[in-house]
């Protein structure tokens, strides 16, 4: 459970969150929706303690790891797909075998035989998005922060990612910030942020 306790955050004069207190429970996909500028991405950053509130506190369960897919978090264009995956999983103390790499690739629909040694910079936006999701899967984190995870993906990519999210949700806390109808549909619960 992620607990927001009296969280206040403002940017300049604009108060984005004013004394927000709420609990985010695990085992389900929690959608975060709201108009542009309502603070969906900021909400995810607060939940992941990537951003500190002006006042109040966010409490995460002890010893829980976080992974994220977000337009603001890119992977290394100068590294190959394999190197990106190996780098991030090594940061979390996981060594990836060749089989594991291929398995991760097939789960997100990225053929590692063909694209494993290509630099991520040469990928299309959709392929990069799939690779980012593969990175998320590779580190096996307890908390997933997904910011528009299927934007730029084709139907095949969407299906693969939706099924991964559904399969993973028990035992994890999954937050999904989106305004996309299909993404909202897979959420078990939706928090709508007021503007």
């Amino acid at each position: 459970m992620i607990a927001f306790d009296d969280v206040t955050l403002s940017f300049g004069r604009r108060v984005l969150f004013d004394n927000v207190t709420l609990n985010l429970r695990g085992g389900r996909v929690i959608g975060i929706t709201g108009a542009n500028g309502a603070g969906k991405s900021t909400f995810l950053k607060l939940a992941g303690k990537i951003l500190q509130p002006d006042s109040g506190s966010v409490t995460l369960p002890a010893y829980k790891t976080i992974a994220a897919v977000s337009p603001e978090m890119k992977i290394y264009d100068d590294l190959t797909a394999t190197e990106n995956l190996k780098f991030f999983s090594r940061l979390r103390g996981k060594a990836l075998t060749a089989e594991k790499l291929f398995e991760l690739g097939s789960r997100v629909g990225l053929d590692m035989k063909t694209f494993g040694d290509a630099r991520a910079g040469t990928f299309s936006t959709g392929m990069r998005q799939r690779l980012k999701f593969a990175v998320l899967l590779s580190v096996d984190a307890d908390i997933w922060l997904l910011d528009e995870p299927t934007a730029n993906l084709d139907d095949d990519g969407r299906e693969k990612i939706f099924s991964e999210v559904q399969a993973a949700k028990s035992g994890k806390i999954i937050l999904l910030a989106t305004n996309d109808k299909a993404e909202v549909e897979i959420c078990d619960e939706v928090i709508r942020l007021p503007l």
């Binding site: 992974a67 977000s70 603001e72 978090m73 890119k74 992977i75």
Partner: peptide, 11 residues
């Protein structure tokens, strides 16, 4: 390159 937030999250 927007990789710094990713690095900060994972390391």
């Amino acid at each position: 390159a927007c990789t710094l937030p990713t690095l900060k999250l994972y390391a």
